[in-house]
Amino acid sequence: MNKIVSAVLMFTLVMSQVRAQDETEKPDKPEKDSEGIIPISPVKLFDALPANPKTWELKRSIGTRSYSGWVESRVQRIFEKKVIDPKKPDEPEKVLVTRVTITDTGKFSEAIAGFDDFKPEKHEDYEKAFIQKYPAVIVPYEGEVEVTLLVKGRFKVEYILENQPKKYLKEWMRHTKFDVLTKIADTPVTVLPAEINILKIDQLNPKKNSVYLLATSSNSQQAKDLAEEEILQKKIDGEIPVLPGELDFLLE
């Protein structure tokens, strides 16, 4: 009995030493476990996207549910329109491209970090403003403008307009059914599910549709696994005392 008690005491002592040793090593930035709302199906998000506006050709219409630290549902449509500048009829056609993307971030903090402490402001490279009451980040690039709105603190609606004046944005927003998004009720915040249905929906080429389950685990579990395994290995190596029977499974 005394032996067991002393073994436990020794184990505790060594454990504290192990922790102390860990602390002396390179600091490990702790990671929080992901939390958020489980996004709705991308199928439902399609309803909010612009349909096929007249004179524009729908080139792509895809929906995905993916994982990037948290579950994310995303739909995107790409429209194209070829125009000839009446003032320059000899020049080749100009291709106008519009990408409209709606992402249900599930309020995952990292996904909407760009909108933290949002207030309208102008920077050298970008601008923050409210557009139709939604906080928006506007980034101009050469020949392209990129506007991202945050709806309900959850849905990112992104417009990338190539070869178009910024004023076209209003038109694209008019075709976007924001009420579909605003009507989606938030579900309780939760931790990451054990498995996520990873989806790919290609409305123009349904043969490319795919689905699979993706198993995930938490950051804290990973950290715990690493710590436990390290201790176990030290026990196997005889660097830490072992409780009676603890390593019997290694015997045969």
């Binding site: 990037s68 054990a194 498995e195 389950l213 993706l214 198993a215 685990s217 579990q221 990973q222 696994d225």
Partner: peptide, 28 residues
């Protein structure tokens, strides 16, 4: 990349809520 605790892998036809092909992700 480690699977979460409740996930079981087994042969095709295996019970105990198992599947024979499972995709597991690492942390980002």
């Amino acid at each position: 990349a480690t699977a979460p605790r409740p996930i079981n892998i087994g042969p095709r036809g295996g019970r105990q809520n198992s599947r024979n092909r499972i995709v597991v992700t690492s942390q980002t």
